Simulated scan of single mutants.
Amino acid sequence: MSTYLQLISLFGMLSLLSIGGGNAVLPEMHLRAVHGQHWLSDSQFADIFSISQTAPGPSILIVTMVGYAAGLHVAGIPTAILGGVIATVAMIVPAASLMYVVTLFWQKAQKSKWRIAVEKGFAPLTVGLILATSLVMSKAADHDWRAYILTAICTLIFVRSKINPLFIVGIAGLIGYFGIV
């Protein structure tokens, strides 16, 4: 039962902080799930992040997978499934409820200076959260200097060129598959 309460507490809090999407809170999710609760290792977290990003459906699928791992850490498959459901509900319900209430007032304050200031302030905040996520995920996934170099090269290509990202990801995957990295 304490694991379920920890999942509700963690994902309920992250739900309200996930400005810009669920990936914005990955550093805190990683810190709590890997180093705080030890539900996953660094490499397992990186693996489930990769799976959640490539699988069809919402990118927040990682929450379900962390909840599943937490339940599996405590007991068997039924507990793991319940952990995944609890984590998902805890991530969705608080933010959805808050957004419903805020939207009721937000529409009425279209010309308010306060609304304009909040909207302008959220853009840099979101960018910072996404950059923090990138740093945490590269640390969790990259294990030697070659992997860090590959990550840096791919990042530069993504930022500096208009090459289709799927092409770059495919090449990086092949490099990993053949054991170069």
Rank of each mutant, 00 (worst) to 15 (best):
H35Q: 13
A147H: 07
A132R: 02
G176E: 10
S15H: 15
T151M: 13
I48N: 09
Q44I: 00
L31E: 15
I19N: 04
L26T: 15
I48L: 09
G36V: 00
L129H: 02
G173D: 03
W145F: 08
L14D: 13
P165G: 06
A87R: 10
I157M: 08
A70Q: 01
L72V: 01
V63L: 03
A141V: 12
I60Q: 08
I130A: 06
A141S: 12
L174W: 02
I157G: 02
I116W: 05
A96T: 13
L82V: 12
F105K: 15
M99W: 11
Y177F: 15
K139E: 14
T151Q: 12
S43I: 00
T155F: 11
S18Q: 09
L166V: 15
K108I: 10
L14P: 13
L129A: 06
G12D: 03
H30W: 13
S52C: 10
G83M: 09
C154H: 01
G128E: 03
P124M: 03
Y177C: 10
M99E: 06
F11Y: 05
I81M: 10
G20M: 04
P58E: 07
I62E: 00
W106Q: 12
W145H: 02
T155Y: 04
T133Y: 08
A109H: 05
A96E: 14
I86R: 01
A75H: 11
W106S: 12
I149F: 05
K162L: 07
G179W: 08
A70E: 01
Y4H: 02
L7I: 05
G21I: 09
I60H: 12
G71D: 08
S43H: 13
P165D: 11
G179E: 08
W114V: 14
A140S: 15
V118K: 01
V85N: 04
G176R: 07
H143I: 09
F122N: 13
P78Q: 06
A69W: 04
A75R: 03
S112E: 04
S161M: 03
Q6M: 09
L40I: 05
A87T: 02
L72I: 01
K139N: 14
